[in-house]
Amino acid sequence: MLRIIDQYAFANRLRAVDPIQKGAIAVATILLCLVLDRPLVGWLALAWMVMVTVWYARVPLRVAGAVIGAESVFLALSVIGIAVSVGNEPPAAALLAIPFGPLWLSATGASLQTALHVLSRALGSAAALNFLILTTPLIDLIELLRRLRAPALLIELMALSYRALFVLLDTLDQMVTAQTARLGYASWRATLRSSALLGSRLFIVAYQRSQALEVALTARGFAGELRVLPLSYTVDRQLWLIGGLIGASLV
């Protein structure tokens, strides 16, 4: 999943657009979802944001759908608590009541509505965040933080971890392939043993990589600060227009 998101973040049509612009649109949509109390705000935001991601940025619907789908499962599970109340008497005016041992689980029309309302706004915000994540690689998000004057240490840590993550993922892939080729996962016992070995080996590799990286950085004159040139971006007028229209439709 991580790799797929990353891949589209680099390959979509808005890749070169200034992250400030994309970030502003996403954040504005999220704020509107949180602040406005209209019933349709969340659903509208969800629809617009998925549309912008799919049609304007050309991220495949399959990918955008999978991401929002996974999120909606989590969000739906977490609003169940709002929709359902638990009591030890059969509820009076419930739309739905299920006995559960000595307890009664019940949902009223009003509680369901509240739950849906919360869910819609959460989904709208999630879709806005997805728009940003699926169109903006992490290096651009880090660049965004840099421009917003986040602490240098935080930025360097994020940048290094992001790079290290992919190096380690590659290493992990290779080690799993090598183990599989030697029947490392052919049985239950072998799987257990192989994964234990994998874990400890990965830790050592990570450590060695960090040391080698330090050597390489030193050789290029590292003096405690990872200074790099800023990336350059374009501004997309049409996207501002679309963002404005979305905002207007929500308000």
Binding site: I139, A159, A212, L213, L217, R220, R227, V228, L229
Partner: peptide
């Protein structure tokens, strides 16, 4: 091993590291 040397996720930024340090 180039994986030991490339620290930045962006090719452009990685190459710019040395010159800025100079």
């Amino acid at each position: 091993s180039p994986d030991d040397q490339l620290f930045s996720a962006s090719v452009w930024q990685d190459i710019s590291f040395g010159p800025l340090n100079l």
